[in-house]
Each structure stands twice: as C-alpha cells, then as structure tokens.
Design a protein around this nucleic acid. Sequence first.
DNA 1: ATCCTATCCTGGCTGC
DNA 2: TGCAGCCAGGATAGGA
Length: 276
Amino acid sequence: MPELPEVETAVRLLRPQLEGRRIASAEVFWPRTIGGQAPAAFAQAVVGARVATLRRRAKYIVADLERGGRGAGALLVHLRMTGRLYVEPARAPRDKFVKLELALEKGKVLRFLDVRKFGRFLFVEDAASELAALGPEPLEPQFKAQWLQVALGARKRRIKPLLLDQEFLAGMGNIYTDECLHQAGIHPLARSDRIDAARVKRLHEAIRSVLRAAIQREGSSFDVFYRTPEGQPGSYQDQFKVYGRTGKPCRVCGEPIARVVVGQRGTHFCRRCQKR
DNA sequence: ATCCTATCCTGGCTGC
DNA sequence: TGCAGCCAGGATAGGA
C-alpha cells in the first residue's frame, strides 16, 4: 500500500505536471473523498488557485496553492489503501473507480482513482498547523540514531505499533516496518525501551536504507493496486525479506518466515533472526 | 499511557 | 460455475 516510498515516487513524477498549473474546475464523484467540508465548498476553495509547490510530508501529498502570487492554503491528498493520482488528457476515458478530478489547463486533468474509497482530499488554510502533530521525516538529516534512542526509551510500547504511529515517526507503513525490523534483528513485539543501543543503531540505519532503496525502485507493487502516476508498477517487492513471505525460508538463515497479528496488522518476521 | 476493537470499503481469494 | 464469507489495511474514535 502507499507508504513513504510510494508517496515520494508519486510526488516526484507529478511535480513537473502540476507545479505552476492552475486548477480550472473540480468534480467530485464520491463525496466522502472530501474531508472536512462539503464538496461544493472544497471546489470553491481550490478552483482558480495555482499549484505553487508539490511536496510530501509523511504519507501526504501536499500541494501548496497560491492566488495572484500569494499563498492561498493547501491541498492535502492521502492515498490511504488504494488511492492513485495521475495526470492525463481530459479526453482519455475516465476509469470507473475515479472519485475526483481537477481540470488543469491545456486539456489535462488530474484524476484520483481509489477502488476502496479510503483516500482523502483535504483543503486547509494552513498546511503547517494541519501537519504539525506528525513525527520526524526519517530521510531528513534531523532523524538521528541518538534521537531514536531517546525517543524509544521514553515510550513503553511494542516496537511495531510504535513505528507505525505517524505521530512518532512519519511515513512508515506495515510493509516497510516489517522489512526494517528484520534488517535490524528486532522482534516486532519488543518493548521500545528495552531494545539495546546496538540494535537501535541498526534500526536507524535500516529505516534509512530500506526507504531509500524502495524509492530508488519506485516503491512496491505486490497486488493490482499500487502503480506510479505513470501507471508503472514499482519493483521493490522483489527485495522483500519478510513481507508476504509467510512460510518461505528467511533469506538470511533459512528459517520459515512467521506471520502473527500485532495491533490488528499482519506481521512477518524471522523467529531466528529476530529474537525477543 | 497503552492497548484493543470497530469503522470505513471492495476486489480477490478460499472453500463448499 | 456460483456464491457466501473472509481478508487486506491507514487512520481514527471510543472504550477498557
């Protein structure tokens, strides 16, 4: 599902197609796609605005808007489970799962396709305050092993749900959390304040290297859903060590990969490489 | 403070 | 071949 690498890939591919473009009109086909206000009010807020910058924060795609060169709020898009965002000619046939579209200039249209309808569009006056509660970005320089050590020690939660908590650390999802814990040799049920310093350091390195490698491969596509905005599947799923490999041999030690449920999430790990 | 459950959704899969 | 029932999962709300 779209996690940090998939959202980052989407932003990179969409940026040249959206920055500088004006939103000519908005059509909402599934009203609940709009969060926080009625579709008509949303349309009024974004139509006529220009996309100044397109960026990512956690798993949000953020389009900072402007009118007449001045800031005019922001459009936040969360893809959730099955959301896909792409630009195509307005005359291209509209997929039946398209929930919303924004007409751009030059006959192009930004379409939001979302089979399971969990994705959300949000117009906000102040993006910074809306996103203020999110944890640090793992690929920014401010995310340091020392910070992680202190932050883990300050909590007493099981490590996997903690890493999934967007207010603790931004952008991690079910797949990359399993992969990172495996690479770091940490059991998903380990209590955050009882992980030794060496493993915390490995976890910090794993988070950065796994996310970077996944971005390099344009994310993961393990079912029919995730595609880049250009319609291409990512290829990081070929690198999975544990996710979706239940019963298959660990690529490190050969032990069959175990699957348990932690915090309502399917969790994959190696009982030999990741001792409690 | 932390954990657990339900909710939102539907295509795809399993089992009969 | 058909169909009922289950599953996946990001975020959030409410209760324990």
